[in-house]
């Protein structure tokens, strides 16, 4: 039985100048921007329509959210370093930086857990107000993306990294695509943070 090789997984397509995965991940990220865009649009509509709108700082924990912003920005730079280590063909350094990225994701989730539990403990449920409803929807969807990103990074840390021995160029491409998704998660938080907490 003959095997069919999937084309353009590590060599760029002549017409697009890109490997297929790269174009694919960017189109996926574009759809993600529209998904969050729809919810941001809902936020604007709700805020314009509301007679009174609470200041985020009066309900939410700004210091914890600032800490989470720093954690996510730090995870973005370690993600860049992880990819760069693979380009330099240093798998051990890649594993080190990837571990830190996953750890940052975990810290983000733990901080978010404390934030959520404090809200729920004080009876601040999504049904309490329009502000809390959109707050839980937007941050909840973002948390799901953090979890999704962490699962992909964990796969590339353990089982997926076996590909490094057989096809390093393809594995580096995979890490780059996972990195692009992780940066999007950071990007969304950069806009969520001032929108919900500071305005």
């Amino acid at each position: 039985m003959s095997t069919i090789e999937i084309p353009y997984v590590s060599k760029p397509r002549p017409d697009t100048g890109l490997v297929n995965a790269k174009l694919g991940i960017w189109l996926f990220l574009a759809s993600e921007v529209m998904l969050f865009g729809g919810l941001f649009s809902a936020y604007v509509l709700l805020r314009i329509g509301a007679e009174i709108w609470p200041e985020g700082v009066s309900i939410l924990n700004v210091p914890l959210a600032t800490l989470n912003t720093v954690v996510l920005i730090s995870s973005s730079i370690t993600m860049v370093m992880a990819w760069a280590s693979l380009v330099r063909r240093d798998i051990n350094k890649y594993r080190f930086y990837n571990y830190i990225t996953i750890a940052c994701g975990l810290i983000f989730l733990v901080v978010k857990y404390f934030e959520y539990s404090a809200k729920l403990h004080h009876g601040l449920f999504p049904s309490e107000s329009t502000f809390l409803a959109i707050y839980f929807t937007l941050t909840g969807l973002h948390v799901l993306h953090v979890i999704g990103g962490m699962l992909v990074l964990a796969y590339l840390q353990f089982i997926g990294s076996k590909m490094w021995n057989t096809d390093p160029a393809r594995f580096t491409g995979r890490v780059e695509c996972a990195g692009l998704f992780w940066h999007l998660v950071d990007l969304v938080w950069i806009f969520l943070f001032p929108t919900l907490y500071l305005m």
Binding site: M34, S41, A42, L45
Partner: peptide, 23 residues
């Protein structure tokens, strides 16, 4: 590459429309 930039410029246009609509 330009193909990605063109695809994303479409996203930016539709994103702006999404933000302007509620206003």
């Amino acid at each position: 590459k330009k193909l990605i930039l063109w695809s994303l410029s479409l996203t930016v246009i539709f994103f702006i429309i999404l933000m302007v609509l509620p206003v």
